[in-house]
Design a protein around this nucleic acid. Structure first.
Length: 492
RNA sequence: GGCCCGGUGGUCAAACGGUUAAGACAUCGCCCUUUCACGGCGGUAACACGGGUUCGAUUCCCGUCCGGGUCACCA
């Protein structure tokens, strides 16, 4: 192994979806290692067989790939410290647990669930952090006989009874926890699998992880980890705890971001029409900021600028408005061609006619889209003129009413009919000229036309863009329809 | 409840003993305009509270309050 190289790891459990908080942790792990020229390792923590989810690992791989967090070692690509899936490392943990038993630092515990339950209910369960250390002093011959008769057991670590454990966190500083708060933690579960805490420590050590980056919900349990490192005589890595990402509850209170806060997985957000890069950029700014006012960062820029000492301590609230703003910025930065690619599937949801030029649509909506999912509703009128009320024609600012709208529409129809070249420029010039000729405000002429061809009060793009997209025949038809509508319904 | 962490506008977030306390999002107003947007300009809005330390505290210390996290054979 290369000396002194920074190694961070992302160690998700395969739950089947990528929680945004986890993604943020992965991002920071990646940034810390890459900004320091280190390696980023992926390890799957699947020690809870009850939670096994089919295909969950693929979600992890595909998400990391989509956002560009490329790992240097992992289950799919191997590495010198594999296997990288904990269920395939089961024997390793047992071996290390046994070592602790031999050294008198851990012990077999035969307490069953029922006893533990009762213990929790009792008053003095607060002592020793919840477990009364019933099996800590068991007679060796008794243990042997229990083992021989195949009694189920767990292996627990002996925690110090008094004193305190302190450690330095790179963002929170020195933290001290009284040892009596810590119960004799379980290392190996009755099913033979290691607990998360134990597997985590063993693997981090074996895989040479130098910086442990995780959410600060682990802050108060970190001493447990350290006591394990100490029991083995291993060097304690650097700790970097990240401030939590919070979600706003319906009653206005805050809590750790979770499903009840809406779309909180990466997939949800992508399905909602947010771009992966925008998501990454946004979550990077949740808990970290550069020393200037910059907000837009590519992953490469983040690597260049990231520094641990600018990680924030206080929790932050996930804000969809701000995410939308980032998303818009990323959309605006793209070329028309890129957007055509990106928008096409969403355009197709509303438009089936084959004679519509998608690129024209892209050009007119590109500055109005905040998330891709709103595209279909934005342009549905292009496919089919919706029903509308004639008072849409009345607009104070544009100085339009039913009468002049009808008049304008008739005139415009006449002239449009004679227009041979149908494109944005020719339509634009014609209408502007007409307004001048008729001594009307541009708006007075444009408004009725836009309403007639869209049937909507608010549209992406104005009359000219819509006429251009619709084409001559359809445009004339819709204007005709508007004329009839005004003539039939206008008097009343 | 014990323990741990946090507390700058509605949200994100600068400042690291002396500033008229930045900026961004949101919001409001105006301008631009062919609706809505985009863009431009401007406004409202914050150092949780009380004690210290100091010539001077948003900044350092203590307490209070508030918020969150954690106390599993889940990770």
């Amino acid at each position: 192994m290369e000396k002194n190289i920074v190694r961070t790891r992302y160690a998700p459990s395969p739950t089947g979806f990528m929680h945004i908080g986890n993604l943020r942790t992965a991002l920071y792990e990646y940034l810390i290692s890459k900004s320091l020229g280190g390696k980023f390792i992926l390890r799957i923590e699947d020690t809870d067989k009850c939670r096994y989810v089919e295909g969950a690992q693929d979600v992890i791989y595909s998400t990391l790939k989509k956002v560009g967090l490329i790992h240097d070692e992992g289950p799919d690509i191997g590495g010198d410290f594999g296997p990288y899936i904990q269920s395939q490392r089961k024997d390793i943990y047992l071996k290390y647990a046994m070592k602790l038993i031999e050294e008198g630092k851990a012990y077999y515990c035969f307490c069953d669930k029922e006893r533990l339950e009762n213990l929790k209910k009792s008053e003095d369960s607060l002592e020793y952090g919840g477990y009364d250390r019933h099996c800590r002093g068991l007679d060796k011959s008794f243990v042997d006989s229990m083992l021989k008769s195949n009694k189920p057991y767990v292996i627990r670590q002996k925690m110090p009874i008094d004193g305190s454990t302190k450690f330095i966190d790179e963002v929170y500083g020195e933290i001290t926890v009284e040892n009596k708060e810590l119960q004799d933690q379980i290392l190996i579960k009755a099913d033979g699998f290691p607990t998360y805490n134990f597997a985590n420590v063993v693997d981090d050590y074996l895989m040479g992880i130098t910086h442990i980056v995780r959410g600060c919900e682990y802050l108060s349990s970190t001493p447990k980890y350290n006591l394990l490192y100490e029991a083995f005589g291993w060097k304690i890595p650097k700790y970097i705890h990240l401030p939590l990402i919070m979600g706003k509850n319906e009653d206005g209170s805050l809590s750790k971001l979770s499903k009840r806060h809406g779309s909180v997985s990466f997939e949800d957000l992508v399905n909602d029409g947010y771009l992966p890069q925008a998501i990454v950029n946004y979550i990077a700014m949740l808990g970290w900021c550069p020393n200037d006012n910059r907000e837009i960062f590519s992953l490469e820029d983040l690597i260049k600028n990231f520094s641990i000492d600018r990680i924030n301590k206080s929790p932050s609230v996930f804000d969809y408005d701000k995410l939308s703003w980032f998303n818009q910025e990323y959309i605006k930065a793209k070329s028309d061609d890129d957007l055509l690619q990106l928008f096409t599937p969403y355009i197709k949801k509303s438009i089936s006619s084959s004679n519509i030029d998608y690129l024209k649509i892209v050009k007119t909506i590109r500055n109005r889209v905040t998330k891709l999912s709103e595209i279909p509703d934005m342009i549905d009128f292009i496919q089919l003129l919706p029903e509308y009320k004639i008072d849409l024609f009345i607009n104070k600012k544009s100085k339009t009413n039913l009468e002049n709208s009808l008049f304008v529409l008739k005139k415009v129809k006449e002239r449009l009919l004679k227009l041979d070249i149908w494109n944005h420029e020719s339509i634009h010039d014609l209408l502007i000229d007409m307004a001048k000729e008729m001594k009307l405000k541009n708006g007075t002429l444009m408004w009725p036309v836009r309403i007639a061809v869209s049937g909507k009060l608010v549209t992406p793009g104005g009359a000219v863009e819509i006429l251009d997209i619709l084409g001559k025949d359809e445009s004339i038809n819709r204007i005709d329809f508007g004329i009839n509508k005004l003539e039939n319904e206008g008097d009343r």
